[in-house]
């Protein structure tokens, strides 16, 4: 299985590009419905969110299944999420704010919903910037890992941004779905971190160490 997953990696990477290519193609051909700008901005945002959730799914899935080659997918998924988030921000700035930087800044200042989304994107920038192999050595593994824990804050901000966007029209269905999925992903990490901490300190609990699992 791990061999299959490794071989599939470039295809997964390519597949991540498809929704965006499709959205842009429809948008440029004026086939995105009556309000193409809004459909494009929202579509890009949806995919940024989905890919971020998939990125966060990699580690739990790896532990559940033992398919450790999945780890090789994580960076690509994360970078694609960032790529969609960046297009989402640019499309908003261009199509909603006419490319006017001062209008964007004013909008960020006036509307918490926009500010939360913008902060989430800004927090992704250092993560994307330190996603190359050498960055881990330069920063040191501990510091790199600490920095990349920002992704949890980003996910919560993204969920808030999404929920806020839906709140005015009270469309909560998919907010619940994404919220429940994120809760599971974060809960798994808490449980996992807790059981690892116990495994590392056998003397304190007086129990034999259970087999450490990654």
């Amino acid at each position: 299985m791990n061999r299959v997953l490794r071989a599939a990696k470039p295809w997964v990477w390519l597949a991540c590009a498809l929704p965006g290519a499709w959205l842009w193609a429809l948008a440029l051909a004026d086939r995105l419905g009556a309000n193409p700008a809004e459909a494009l901005i929202r579509g890009l945002g949806d995919w940024a969110l989905r890919l971020l959730w998939l990125t966060l799914l990699v580690t739990p899935l790896r532990h559940w299944t033992g398919w450790h080659a999945l780890a090789g997918w994580r960076r690509g998924l994360g970078l694609w999420s960032f790529a969609y988030a960046t297009q989402h921000v640019l499309a908003y700035a261009w199509l909603d704010q006419a490319g006017d930087v001062s209008a964007v800044l004013a909008d960020v200042g006036q509307r918490p919903f926009i500010a939360v989304g913008m902060v989430a994107w800004l927090l992704l920038v250092p993560l994307a910037a330190t996603s190359w192999d050498g960055a881990v050595q330069r920063l040191g593994a501990g510091r790199w890992r600490a920095l990349h824990r920002l992704v949890y804050a980003v996910a919560l901000l993204v969920l808030l941004h999404f929920a806020w966007m839906r709140s005015g029209k009270r469309l909560w269905d998919d907010v619940w779905v994404y919220g429940a999925a994120l809760a599971l992903l974060l809960l798994w990490r808490l449980v996992h971190a807790f059981s690892r901490a116990r495994a590392r300190a056998p003397a304190a609990t007086g129990r034999p160490p259970s087999r450490a699992r990654g």
Partner: peptide, 8 residues
């Protein structure tokens, strides 16, 4: 001049 809470 009266924005919606989430957009201008």
């Amino acid at each position: 001049d009266v924005p919606h809470p989430r957009w201008s």
